[in-house]
Amino acid sequence: MIGPQAAGTWYDDMSDNANGPAGAGRSRLDWLRRYGLPLALAVIFAGLSAATPNFLTAQNLIIVLRQISINGILAVGVTFVLLTGGVDLSLGSVLALSGVVAAHCAHPGAWPLAFPVVVGMLVGCACGGANALVVTRGRVPSFIVTLGMMTVARGLALVASGGKPVSNLSKGFCLIGGGEALGIPVPVIILACVAALAYVVLRHMRVGRHVYAVGGNEAAARASGLRVGRIKCFAYVTCGALAGLAGVVLAARITTGQPNAGIAYELDAIAAAVIGGTSLSGGVGGVGGTILGALLMGVINNGLDLLNVPSYYQQIVKGLIIVGAVWIDRGGRR
């Protein structure tokens, strides 16, 4: 694990000896640091299993996985940007834009199935590329650039759809969101592939290591001969492409391209990554944690619905659990 915590966490250990340096016996805090998030997840899991018989069933767990797939894909994408020390607030709008454009290409019999998927992702790539260009060339803070893109992409989505949902999508396309393979929903399979790929890129590929270095200390990365601009560009484009993919999956799931879909999704995605241990200041974190973070949020949503907690209280409980989980995870880090 890269970061201020010495021992690291088992799910995103950048080091090869997950036990960390040998030394004085592992303290309680150390243990919390390592297992805090899985622990929080386990506690909530156990609590929900006890509270309602409908929670711990194979079918419900698959539903939870399906429900986190959109947020999960977005969160994996934004993890790349967060690791470089930036932020991407345009995710939700880019998702809507890609969904609308993909939906236009997904009317029955219009194009082969892969076409809308590719087009949706390319739209995402273009938005991410535009973000990256202004961040690296213009040296404008990513918060501002992506805030601007958030509005621009939303506007483009409305233009592209004429303000109305794009419906009448082909059956095949809708399977991307609603289909199953071997009992596993297609969006879950997509999320699993995305997460696995991102994990390999960040842990085992040169460009992944460079992403961490840029976020950890940009000046040192530059002085070590890294092409900081290109590396950031890679992160933003990856993030955009995954937002595009999420938009395609969402459109397929709700069987329309909605110009006003995904409002505030970026915040859920960033929350999942941060819950998972990715630092908002960059250089620390990883995909494994992000997936756990998305899972935690999904389980809470599902559990509160199953328990029939009234809407007003749901919002309060969600907020408290999210902050609490991060608190446990960062317990005692000084």
Binding site: I2, M14, A213, A220, A221, A223, G283
Partner: peptide, 11 residues
């Protein structure tokens, strides 16, 4: 600009 503090010695 010498080191990435959070990274390991190896990295």
């Amino acid at each position: 600009d010498g080191l990435v503090g959070g990274m390991s010695v190896k990295h």
